[in-house]
Amino acid sequence: MSDHLRRDVFEQALAFFGRMTALLSHEMKNALSVLNELGGLLGDLSLSAQRGRPIPAAQLDKIANGIQKQVQRCDAYIKRLHHFSHNTDSFRALVPLDAAVAEIVQLSQILAARKKVTLDVESHAPPQATVVDKVFFWQMAVYECICAALDNAQEGDTIAVRFANHPGPPFVRITGSRGIPETALEPYLPILSVLVGELNATLEQISGGEGKSAAALVIRSATA
């Protein structure tokens, strides 16, 4: 790998990590904003109570439920952030690939929701799990493919991400309902080529779309 390419990969990997953590922290801020308003509402009600106006029990119940809901929401985001961060600091650790794919799809869902696009994940793994190292690179490769599909997606579309490890070596297939045209894929190809090389995998463009459009992208591991 040339120095220039190495620097590109380094920069893009950092950008990927930054983007994912920013997405999660933004969602956490949203949950905190709701908690902030619920706390403020409790303060308003307390002031009213001090002036002799009783607080309806149903309203307190509603606020308590709202607080619990937002705490659970925040907790889910923090868990995702924690898992994702460990994929970076435990770069060589062996991780089940289906779980890693499901995790990156879940994270990318925040991005897809902004375009009103649905991300579907299907896992067809047999009882024998596929474990891989460099899971951060696997997740980055899947994310880059999702981004290429998202660039060509429109409101209401669905992008399907399928993981399978039989028959043959494990693979991840990303299918956009409008296909993935070459123009959409082009900006992602340089980094994808490096990533699949690092993963000892290949990137296949499954034809079937209209014109120069690929119906799906497949990242296929060279080893079973």
Partner: peptide
């Protein structure tokens, strides 16, 4: 949830 509570306040 945010707009509901903020508008109430």
């Amino acid at each position: 949830e945010f707009t509901d509570v903020l508008s109430e306040r």
